[in-house]
Structure formats: structure tokens, C-alpha cells
């Protein structure tokens, strides 16, 4: 079982809170678009998903 993060692009406002919580996994690119890598640090990813101010992130496993 590998965890997977889904981003709702309609809802994401590029606030960048996830990048601060889990910097290795989330990154806003130069266009302000969220890039998501492998959710390696699961605890940090869970925090990031919870902390998203627009509720745009979902963790599936």
C-alpha cells in the first residue's frame, strides 16, 4: 500500500502552507502551481493535509 496525495486544483489557492509543513513533498513552482512528490514523510504529509487552509488536499492510501 502506498499513500497518495490528491490536489483539488479548483480549490487550491497556492497558499503554500503544505510546503512549509512538508517541504520535501510539496512545492509551489515558479507559476504558483502546486507540485506533489512522493509522500515520504507520512506524518508531515498528514499535518500538511490537515493544515491546508482551503482543504484542497486529500491523502489516499
Amino acid at each position: 500500500m502506498t499513500a497518495r496525495v490528491v490536489v483539488d486544483r479548483e480549490v487550491c489557492m497556492s497558499a503554500g502552507v503544505c510546503e512549509l509543513e512538508a517541504p520535501g513533498v510539496f512545492e509551489l513552482d515558479a507559476d504558483g502551481r502546486l507540485q506533489v512528490g512522493e509522500p515520504t514523510d507520512l506524518a508531515a504529509v498528514e499535518t500538511a493535509v490537515r493544515a491546508c487552509p482551503t482543504g484542497a488536499l486529500q491523502l489516499l492510501d
Binding site: 489557492m13 497556492s14 503554500g16 510546503e19 509551489l28 507559476d31 504558483g32
Partner: peptide
């Protein structure tokens, strides 16, 4: 979304 680009953590 336009202004967010200027405020990314990076």
C-alpha cells in the same frame, strides 16, 4: 492565483 505566485514559500 496571480498574486500567490509572488508569495510562494520559495
Amino acid at each position: 492565483r496571480i498574486v500567490a505566485k509572488a508569495f510562494t514559500p520559495r
